[in-house]
């Protein structure tokens, strides 16, 4: 019979996150050896298709950079944002059974999913980046520290929005479908594929209401040397969209945590 030691709250939190993360990784990769290859396919496809479509038109003369490099610096922040947001939203449902274990709280499931997605996506893009470097592209970020901080920021932005959406889905479960579908237009409106600065200015003025576009442009601004971002790019928008979203997401969790029903 195993004795259970009384642990400090900090220790409990550490044990729980460790156990959940490990469980997440083994669920994804423990089963099959090619599991990792499957996960790689998605980001590669998102890189390969636009390159096949626009790669010939959008060469150095249009964007100032080789298209795959230009694309990657937009794709990475967008992907981090989208995946973390979606996974956070789903985590509330997916791990429900585990809430019966006393040390596991809903927020642990949410943080685990976000952390798992962040590490996974980072690893995937690290592999893809290494691959592209080997082929001969120059991918080294111009301002590495600021750029990495931005990526961490976009992860928190995604976490915040995911928590808001999870709260919405908790009383409107059907909203999930609509939310999933609306990521497609968001993708197109966020300047991942095409250089927004080359669009007519009155278009960009409208598009600049979308905070995700600012994050994408900021990533290129910090990552690519001598990049000319859209002149509307505002780091204030970047910071406050992330901070407010995270704040609202956490507050909604705090307010709505009582309404969950565990069975």
């Amino acid at each position: 019979m195993q004795q259970i030691e009384i642990r400090s709250p900090y220790q409990v939190q550490k044990d729980v996150l460790y156990a959940l993360l490990l469980r997440e990784y083994s669920a994804r990769f423990g089963r099959s050896r090619i599991g990792f290859l499957w996960v790689l396919i998605e980001p590669i496809a998102h890189l390969a298709f636009p390159v096949a479509m626009f790669g010939f038109i959008l060469d150095r003369h249009v964007t100032g950079y080789e298209y795959p490099v230009f694309l990657l610096y937009g794709l990475l922040p967008y992907f981090l944002f989208r995946s973390i947001c979606m996974q956070t939203m789903e985590s509330v449902n997916a791990g429900r059974g585990l809430l019966s274990y006393r040390p596991v709280h809903l927020i642990d499931l949410i943080f685990t999913k976000a952390l798992f997605t962040l590490t996974l996506e980072s690893l995937l893009f690290l592999i893809i980046g290494t691959g592209l470097t080997v082929i001969g592209y120059d991918l080294v970020p111009a301002q590495p520290v600021q750029w990495l901080a931005l990526l961490l920021g976009v992860a928190l932005f995604g976490l915040g929005l995911g928590m808001i959406l999870a709260a919405i889905c908790s009383f409107m479960p059907d909203a999930r479908t609509v939310i999933r579908v609306s990521f497609m237009p968001l993708y197109l409106a966020s300047g991942v594929l095409l250089p927004v600065s080359r669009f007519p200015d009155e278009w960009v003025a409208w598009m600049a209401w979308n905070p995700v576009l600012h994050w994408v442009e900021a990533s290129r601004d910090l990552g690519l040397a001598h990049y000319q971002p859209m002149h509307q790019l505002s780091y204030r928008m970047v910071f406050f969209s992330g901070a407010w979203t995270l704040f609202i997401g956490l507050s909604l969790y705090r307010l709505r945590r009582l309404s969950r029903v565990t069975t």
């Binding site: 195993q2 259970i4 030691e5 642990r7 220790q11 409990v12 044990d15 729980v16 460790y18 156990a19 490990l22 469980r23 083994s26 423990g30 274990y101 040390p103 596991v104």
Partner: peptide, 13 residues
């Protein structure tokens, strides 16, 4: 076995 291990980790065993 993995499920049992998971519970062990939750309780710091």
């Amino acid at each position: 076995r993995e499920n049992v291990k998971f519970v062990c980790r939750l309780y710091g065993v």
